[in-house]
Amino acid sequence: MSAPENQDAVVPPAVEATVPTPVVPAEVVAAPTPAVAPEVALAPEPVPEVPVATSKVQPQPYWNSYVAGVALGLVLLAAFVVTGRGLGASGAVTRMAAYSLQSLEASVKGGTAAAGDTIARRNEYTGQYLKGPADPLDDFLVYMFIGVVAGGFISGVLSRRASFEIARGPHTTNMRRLAFAALGGFISAYGARLARGCTSGQALTGGATLALGSWAFMFAVFAGGYAIAYFVRKEWL
């Protein structure tokens, strides 16, 4: 990436704010990589005033939300057209958890348990993945999960957002943030399993296919989120 190009696309306020090194412009411009270019062209279309409205709170290197939304919508549409299925995230993790449970018991008890009767196989829920000859990890959603890890990593590296850090509010501690994140993960796992999916598999995919229960799920998620937001506001405000 050449220097003159960089200066054209730079967003001035964010530059000083981020890193005080001479190479800073590159950091800010890193976002418009070749892969990004087609989406950037869409930028003015949906709602032109957005960058102004959000520039104060949203770091510039991220895509405009409507641009990102169109891109995400096209990925989802491609999933429908190509595979007849949508996107998903929690399903893969569920399979991995079931598989781990099985492997753990098998390794503790020795080789015989792997083939035989284990807690995870007897469990009505995990049993559906573990009974039968099929490898529980040989699944559409697991391959998609691997892709999500790769895609997120590629984007993070290209935009220089990949770094070890703890994302938290200004008035909380790192330990509190890590604990709240773990607790939130625990709670949302239970909810996702009960609802048979998460934001991707239910809200996004089910929403776009107009599935009745997915729309009920989506409104319930927003209700739950806003209901708890007041009580944990000190973590973020």
Binding site: V149, G184, I187, C198, T199, A220
Partner: peptide
């Protein structure tokens, strides 16, 4: 789905991720 959604939303509000975004 409604009850699971509310629980999921509470978890979202506490943890500020959902599975897909957490993976990324």
């Amino acid at each position: 789905q409604i009850v699971g959604g509310v629980i999921f939303g509470i978890g979202f509000g506490v943890g500020q991720y959902c599975p897909g975004t957490a993976v990324v």
